[in-house]
Design a protein around this nucleic acid. Structure first.
Lengths: 250, 250
DNA sequence: TCCGAGCCTTGATAAGCATCAACTCGGCTA
DNA sequence: TAGCCGAGTTGATGCTTATCAAGGCTCGGA
C-alpha cells in the first residue's frame, strides 16, 4: 500500500495522469505505518458504500468518490468530493436520508477502525495528525464549495468546478489541461445545485466561447487555465486547495 | 475556564438560556486539561478576528461567531457558524479574500498553539480526540448546510435555519421556543444565500402563517417545533447535530 | 421625549434558472 | 456494422428570487 496516487480514470488505464501524490503541499505523507492497520477495499464505479459502523474510517488511496444524500423531495444531492489522500469517517457526514459514499471511478480504499488509534502507541500521534490535517483540509474545501454555490452565478460556478477537476485529475500540457470527467452531467448538476438541462446549456456556452472543448462525452479540455482563472473569482483559493505540488508540462 | 456554556445572548444577561453544555451528545467534554494551555480572549459583538498565524487554534467557550469571506463581486458570504465547544483553526478555512471570523455576540474564546499538542504528553491524546470530534462534527454541519442551500426552496431553508438556531440558542417552554437572533436580517441572508429583501418577505410569510412570531427586531418565537419540523425535510439531521442533550421544559 | 440613522419592510420589475417535452447523439451489443 | 438505449441537448414557458426604489419602523442618543 503506497502513497495515494492521482487521477485513476474511470474505465481504461490508457490515460495516464501525472503520478504526483494527491495531497496539498505541506501535508505530511500518509505514513506507511497505516499498513497492518487497514483493510484494503476495491470498489467499482457506481458502487455504493453505506456507513455500517461509526467506528469505521475510510482512507481514499485512489479514485474519486462522492458523499451523497437525499435532502428535500427525494432529490439526490452530492455533498462532497473525496480525493486520494482524504480520510473520511461517518462522523463527518450528517444523518440525512440515503447518506453514503458513491464511487465515481473504480477506487481503492483502506478501511480502518477509529478505535485502533486511541491507544497511545508510537505511530498514533503521526497518524492522528495526518487525519486531523485531512479533516481540516476537507472542511476548507467544504467552505469553498459553499462560497461557490452561494456567491457565484451558475456559469462561473461550473467554471470553478472544472478548474478544480482539471487541477485534481487533469493532464497538463502548456496552459492546456485535458481531463476525464468521472461525473456524468447529472452528477455535476447534483453537485453544483443546478438542473441537468441548465448545466448542459452552460457547457455548450463554455464550448462556444472557447473556454473548454470536449472529446466524446466525458473527456474535457480546458483550453487555457489562465483564462479560466480570470473568469473565476475563487481561483486563488481553488488553486491553493486543489493544485498538485507542481503542475509540470508533459 | 469551565465547560462551554450555551446561549450567551447578545447584549443583556437578562435572558438566561438553558445552561447545558453545547455539544453533541456523546462527545466527551472539553477537558479542563486545556487550562494552562490557552490564552483567554474576549471579543465584542461585531468584532473581527483575522487569522494571523496558522499555528493558532481557537476554542469557542461562549457566544456565537461566523466564518466570513468575500467571494465573487465583493459580496460578503457567511460560510459557517461557530458555536460554543467548537474548535477552529485557520486550516479549516479556505484562503478566500477577506476571510476571517466575526463575532455575532460578545464571545469568550481560548487561543491555543497547535504545536502545543504535538508532543506526546499524557493529556495530548484526549485533547486531540476532542479536537478531532469537533472538526468532524463541523464537517457534518457543513454538509448539512450544503444540503439546505442546494435542495431546499428559500422558505424551507429559512425554516431549517430557524430550527437550528432555536435548538442551539433557544429557551424552551412546552413545544414553543423563543430565542434571540444574534444575526441581523442581512447576516442571515448572507448565510442562507438569499437577498435581504427576499428574506424579509419570507419572514413575513412565516409570521402570517403562524409558524413564528417576533418581538422587537431580534427576538423570535417558534410557535411549534413539531410543526416546524414537519415543514423541514432535514429536520432529523438538524436535531441530531444541533439539539442539546435534553430539551427540558422550563 | 424627540430625533436621527440604520435596519427592516414592501411593491414593481426583470433576470436567471427550473421544468417539460421533443429530439439528437454517443457508446455498447449483437 | 446496424441498431438500440440511455445520456445529453435544445426550445418554449413559467416560477422563483434578485434588484431597485420608496417608505416605515427600532433603537440609541441628546
Amino acid at each position: 500500500m503506497a502513497l495515494p496516487q492521482a487521477g485513476m480514470t474511470a474505465s481504461a488505464p490508457s490515460v495516464q495522469t501525472n503520478a504526483l501524490p494527491m495531497h496539498r503541499a505541506g501535508r505530511p505523507a500518509l505514513p506507511e505505518l497505516l499498513e497492518g492497520h487497514g483493510i484494503a477495499m476495491k470498489v467499482r464505479r457506481r458502487q455504493r458504500i453505506t456507513f455500517a459502523s461509526s467506528d469505521q474510517i475510510y482512507v481514499v488511496q485512489s479514485g474519486l468518490l462522492v458523499l451523497s444524500a437525499n435532502a428535500g423531495s427525494d432529490r439526490r444531492q452530492l455533498l462532497c468530493l473525496l480525493y486520494p489522500g482524504d480520510v473520511f469517517s461517518p462522523a463527518q457526514a450528517p444523518p440525512l436520508d440515503g447518506i453514503g459514499m458513491i464511487a465515481m471511478t473504480d477506487c481503492e480504499l483502506s478501511r480502518l477502525r477509529a478505535s485502533a488509534f486511541e491507544q497511545d502507541q508510537e505511530a498514533t500521534l503521526l497518524i492522528n495528525r495526518y487525519i486531523a490535517e485531512s479533516t481540516s483540509s476537507m472542511h476548507a474545501r467544504a467552505m469553498l464549495h459553499i462560497a461557490r454555490l452561494s456567491s457565484l452565478p451558475s456559469e462561473t460556478r461550473v467554471a470553478a468546478f472544472l478548474l478544480e477537476l482539471a487541477l485534481r485529475l487533469g493532464r497538463v500540457s502548456n496552459d492546456q489541461v485535458s481531463c476525464d470527467l468521472p461525473l456524468s452531467r447529472s452528477d455535476i448538476a447534483d453537485y453544483l445545485s443546478l438542473n441537468a438541462d441548465t448545466l448542459s446549456r452552460i457547457m455548450t456556452r463554455l464550448k462556444e466561447r472557447g473556454t473548454i472543448a470536449t472529446i466524446g462525452r466525458s473527456r474535457t479540455i480546458v483550453k487555457s487555465v489562465k483564462k479560466l482563472c480570470q473568469d473565476v473569482p475563487v481561483c486563488a483559493a481553488t488553486m491553493a486547495l486543489h493544485a498538485q505540488q507542481q503542475l509540470e508540462a508533459s
